[in-house]
Design a protein around this nucleic acid. Structure first.
Length: 493
RNA sequence: GCACGGGUGUCAGAGCGGCUAUGAGCGGGACUGCAGAUCCUGAAACCGGAGUUCAAAUCUCCGUCCGUGCUCCA
């Protein structure tokens, strides 16, 4: 069974197909760069990172485009507020975007077009739409006339063009713009004094929000492409506007073969959003939670389900990622003199324990089936944990060459599933990093070692009270002691 | 109001016609002086009602509750 995806437009899971065999063209709406990214952005780009990774892992050649909206009302507003040139502001937050996403181990898209580089294309499209009577010039800009293509209304959200008027409550009619109908949307906005603007046949101004994605997807992926993604809230009006513009301009239908939308991050059961003021930026969270743990927390739900962010989700993620990292480390420590030199590659080369290997292969198949089922990362994680348990159990039961061979296989197994596909593994170097290299640890190392020596003496003399007292003392300075077969090991809390 | 998603054990969260989800937490057990880690193992669930079916958490209908969209928002 091949890959199936839930298509927002068709409202069901459908077999995934591509326009060109073996290749996937994918466009995901990017951020408007006027502030730091919040958890919701993390979830969105993480969802599409997973999709990106799984498609590549399935053998597709993926062309992944993600834009930056670098001119927009909020950018202008912010730039005036903090008295910073809008270009500088935008540059700053694009840099911040990459820092945050790199930290979360999100692979880079193939290209990141910025809408200000496509203003000419937008103007051409708008001119064409006016010529084809899909758009009209008003006193304050150019608008798309939704009644010129009523069959395209509500394609993603199931709303009929007539129903919208009724429900929009008191907001309807108060647009104050040159729109003929409140459902029409701006293609070009007349510029105001002192604002960034571009010249156009309709005077100086700037593009509307929706037209940019049309211009950039057309320029980078063509008239029709395989996947268009974004947050759930973008279905309407943004993505529906794109359909209007693009299809009316090119005359081709459908512009997109699979519409994919990720679910939201909620805080205490409510949508996290800037307007509600209950949002956390990625960098706020990364001060408290390691990046891969956050990644685990967000992957641990299906990408379309809402996630209610709370402490328990993080605690679960700490346990889960800890188990996976522990197993990975254990395997690395057992495989050979120099684990770093181990070639990456096929995992079926050495087979000391056919039964366990068979089980792991079965788990890997289940894992693939889960990912093929609309990228069910939650299910995939549960398979990964099952495999992780099996590896830990077996590698501890055997020794010698068998153990080395098995551990080698295990490392490759984990690097494929946990590493390449889910992006949850640190590098081999990081996984093996001895805690002594932590500078905070360095500082108290001598004192701790001395206390541990005393405790070992006490324990040898079965003087448990004293041994425990020393352990308590250590825990007061933030040191956790764990006794192992090779003696006590300590780490900072 | 209209549209779209949902309501699964203590919690988080898969499954979406028959078969153990999984993780945390809780209960046993092994190993440990104890603790931790690890391994083995137990209890525990499908919002309410009706229907379809040999069989329903899974399909249909009704009810109910929650979230989201209809306005800038990933």
């Amino acid at each position: 069974m091949g890959l199936r995806v839930y298509d927002t437009k068709r409202r069901e899971k459908v077999d995934f197909s591509t326009i060109e065999p073996g290749k996937v063209s994918m466009y995901v709406c990017g951020v408007t760069v006027y502030d730091y990214c919040h958890l919701g952005h993390a979830r969105c780009y993480l969802s599409f990172d997973l999709i990106h990774r799984w498609l590549e892992s399935s053998g597709y050649d993926v062309n992944y485009i993600q834009n930056f909206t670098d001119i927009e009302d909020k950018i202008i507003k912010r730039s005036i507020e903090i008295d910073e040139d809008w270009r500088a502001l935008v540059g700053r937050f694009i840099d911040a975007y990459f820092e945050d996403m790199d930290a979360l181990n999100i692979l880079r898209a193939d290209s990141y077009p910025r809408c200000t580089d496509y203003v000419e294309e937008m103007i051409e499209i708008i001119e064409d739409l006016i010529q084809k009577n899909h758009a009209y010039i008003a006193n304050d800009g150019v608008y798309f006339d939704v009644h010129s293509a009523p069959e395209k209304y509500g394609i993603l959200t199931g709303q009929s063009i007539d129903a919208v008027l009724e429900g929009a409550g008191g907001r309807v009619g108060s647009t104050g713009s040159g729109k003929r109908d409140h459902k029409d949307f701006a293609l070009w906005k007349e510029g105001k004094e002192g604002e960034p603007s571009w010249s156009s046949p309709w005077g100086d101004g700037r593009p509307g929000w929706h037209i940019e994605c049309t211009a950039m997807s057309l320029a980078t992926l063509g008239d029709q492409f395989d996947i268009h993604g974004g947050g759930h809230d973008l279905r309407f009006p943004h993505h529906e506007a794109e359909i209007f513009q693009t299809e009316c301009h090119t005359g081709k239908h459908p512009m997109v073969h699979h519409w994919l939308h990720n679910g939201f991050v909620n805080i205490d059961g409510e949508k996290m959003s800037k307007s509600l003021g209950n949002f956390w930026t990625i960098r706020d969270i990364l001060e408290k939670v390691p990046a891969l743990t956050l990644r685990m927390a967000l992957i641990n739900a299906h990408y379309r389900s809402p996630i209610d962010m709370n402490e328990q989700i993080i605690n679960d993620a700490i346990k889960n990622i800890g188990r996976i990292h522990d197993t990975y480390k254990l395997l690395l420590e057992n495989l050979s003199e120099d684990p770093i030199q181990l070639p990456r590659g096929d995992l079926s080369s050495m087979l000391p324990l056919p039964k366990s290997i068979g089980l792991l292969e079965k788990i890997a198949e289940d894992f693939a089936r889960a990912m093929d089922d609309d990228f069910n990362s939650r299910e995939a994680v549960s398979k990964l944990i099952a495999g992780s348990k099996e590896l830990t159990k077996v590698v501890n039961q055997i020794s010698g060459d068998d153990q080395k061979a098995y551990a080698t296989m295990g490392v490759l197994w984990m690097e494929e599933l946990a590493g390449e596909v889910l992006g949850l593994l640190p590098t081999r170097e990081e996984a093996l990093l001895k805690p002594e290299t932590d500078p905070r640890r360095e500082a108290i190392s001598q004192e701790v070692e001395e206390l541990l020596r005393q405790r070992t003496i006490a324990r040898d003399g079965k003087n448990w009270a004293e041994a425990d007292a020393i352990r308590d003392k250590l825990s007061q300075i933030g040191v956790t002691v764990t006794d192992t077969a090779d003696g006590p090991v300590w780490e900072l809390a």
